[in-house]
């Protein structure tokens, strides 16, 4: 019986660049009694670092259209990307102001959508931790993952904290706990709270600065002697995986840190194969990590 239903927001990077995260999430969901209802015709969130940097009204109007599609489903949104989460939750917040809502709905006139402020957006971590619960997740584990992990939380999951549900902005342990529920050991490392460097339009227009930021994090992770890093944001994931390869080329380094999105790790623990989790589609080989836990790609 399905107990938890959400409007499933994909965004851009997951369906169009990292479909392994989409595939993994669609497979793990039924085991947790989650039904993912499609948001037909949803668009870019749009990206908070770029489109919001260029024109706030355009950003908010397209956000409102996405929120309206979820509202037409009658369901809160489940979102996998910190950036999309940042946009959608800021949209919900900004559109609570009746004057702003009226102005933006006027722009939406002609699209067939109007937002009424009846739904909100939840990040995967919020859904898993608060709505499903660690115990229920533990119950689905058939293959505990005994390995050492560094967690990268990502900025927009936590900040700005005044419109987030967590109550903390540092020492955030929920992702650590969700990984521990699968049997993993969390390794602390320098600069855990630091940004991956992908956001704000840096990956698109300031790649060198962007890669220098992820390089600093990768060095700290390497020193912590981990088997893999786990993230809860596909844009951070892209930066750690593709960006790691680019950083190696750019700076002459040789980092080989396997990168996993949380639902990929959860899927392995639930008994899905590495191939089903799309682990053969990564830029940095996941093989050393899989070998450590007695699997292969």
């Amino acid at each position: 019986m399905v107990k938890h239903r959400y409007s499933f927001f994909l965004g851009c990077v997951i369906p169009n660049r990292l479909p392994q995260i989409e595939a993994a999430t669609r497979l793990i969901a039924p085991k947790l009694d989650i039904e993912l209802v499609e948001m037909k015709g949803a668009s870019c969130c749009p990206a908070p670092g770029v489109i919001k940097s260029f024109d706030k009204d355009t950003w908010l109007s397209i956000t409102a259209r996405n929120l309206a599609i979820a509202e037409e489903n009658g369901l809160d949104i489940l979102v996998l990307c910190n950036g999309c989460y940042g946009t959608l939750i800021a949209g919900v917040h900004d559109l609570k102001d009746p004057v702003t809502l009226k102005r933006i709905n006027k722009i939406l006139k002609g699209t067939g959508h109007q937002f009424q402020g009846k739904i909100t957006a939840k990040h995967l971590v919020e859904v898993l931790y608060n709505d499903i619960g660690k115990e229920a997740i533990e119950e689905t584990v058939v293959n505990p993952i005994d390995a050492r992990f560094a967690i990268h939380i990502g900025c927009h999951l936590l900040k700005p904290s005044d419109i987030r549900p967590w109550g903390v902005v540092e020492d955030f342990t929920l992702v650590d706990e969700l990984v521990e529920a699968l049997g993993g050991t969390i390794v602390d490392y320098k600069l855990k709270d630091m940004c991956c460097g992908a956001g704000g339009g840096l990956r698109s227009a300031e790649l060198e600065v962007s890669l220098d930021m992820v390089r600093e994090k990768l060095e700290a992770m390497k020193q912590a002697k981990i088997d893999a890093m786990v993230n809860v944001c596909n844009f951070c994931h892209l930066q750690f995986d593709l960006g790691q390869m680019q950083a190696n080329k750019h700076f002459g380094t040789d980092y080989q840190i396997p990168v996993l999105y949380y639902t990929q790790l959860l899927g392995l623990a639930q008994g899905f194969t590495p191939k089903q989790m799309g682990l053969d589609k990564h830029y940095i080989s996941v093989a050393p990590f899989l070998e450590k836990i007695g699997m292969s790609v």
Binding site: L10, P15, N16, E22, E38, M39, K40, G41, A42, S43, D55, D57, T58, S61, I62, R65, I107, L108, G110, T111, G112, H113
Partner: peptide, 22 residues
């Protein structure tokens, strides 16, 4: 193709409508 704007040409027109407005 994902069930996003990529599967619904009408949805792309809606985005373009918003962009013209702003």
């Amino acid at each position: 193709l994902p069930p996003t704007v990529h599967s619904y040409p009408k949805a792309v027109k809606e985005i373009q409508h918003i962009i013209k407005q702003t």
